[in-house]
Design a protein around this nucleic acid. Structure first.
Lengths: 120, 120
DNA sequence: TAATATAGGCACTTTAAAGTACCTATAGAA
DNA sequence: TTCTATAGGTACTTTAAAGTGCCTATATTA
């Protein structure tokens, strides 16, 4: 692995949880282990390819575990690894801040949050 | 402003602080007010265009204040707004996590962090 | 007098991230 | 026997993010 130079340590964090999907995936995993298909249902607009790709990268970085059950049709679960749990505080804070921000900008959350998640 | 639908509230956070530069800029601003040229020096690899663009967007979202001094050559300062300060906890946590992660992955921080910031 | 520092704007190009389409395997149910 | 659900893989295309190059204004300094 080639040693990259960072100008500020937050850059290292962004390499792990940056991008459009990783924080979303990790936030869902803070609520517990999830099958691939469950994640897909929780993120209706992610494509199969992106989901698999992001999960692979998160696994490579050691923040999630991939649990394969040897059965057909296949069953694979993902969960935060012990190391990934060190991100839980950040992930919850990111979710909460977004929640507050939505209220600040739009007033009524129900107008911008899909019904499916209003009861979270 | 068109009302976007979010499937999870962290998406709203990412609209404000997502991308390659915004967290970095905000992290620097947690250490206090900074002139444009200071930010540029702190982020040697950002281009003038990206810096200005990201600062504009952060200002539009209400997380930073732009302070213009009417003088020549121009002097402009940026600081976290009151609202932006609600992100301080997250920003510090992101920096700290990155710091730990670098140690975990590379062992010796001095090999991957530019000297200029090792004494931060 | 000419160079410098400052904080940008704007048109264009490049690159990386994300998305689309189509493919695999197989147990069990209809 | 055909269909469905599951968890992918792969080649290709599109889109959005980021970068490049060149431009402005003016007080101060060398």
């Amino acid at each position: 692995m080639q040693k990259k130079k960072y100008n500020i340590s937050v850059e290292a964090t962004l390499e792990v949880i940056g991008g459009k999907w990783k924080c979303v995936i990790l936030c869902h995993l803070t609520h517990g282990k999830k099958r691939t298909s469950e994640l897909k249902r929780l993120m209706p607009s992610i494509t199969q390819k992106m989901l698999t790709q992001q999960l692979r990268e998160l696994e490579e970085d050691g923040v999630i575990n991939r649990i394969v059950y040897n059965q057909v049709p296949p069953k694979v679960e993902y969960e935060l690894s012990e190391y990934g749990k060190s991100l839980e505080g950040i992930l919850n804070a990111l979710c909460n801040w977004g929640d507050t921000h939505i209220t600040r900008v739009y007033g009524d959350k129900s107008e911008v949050l899909e019904k499916s998640i209003l009861n979270n």
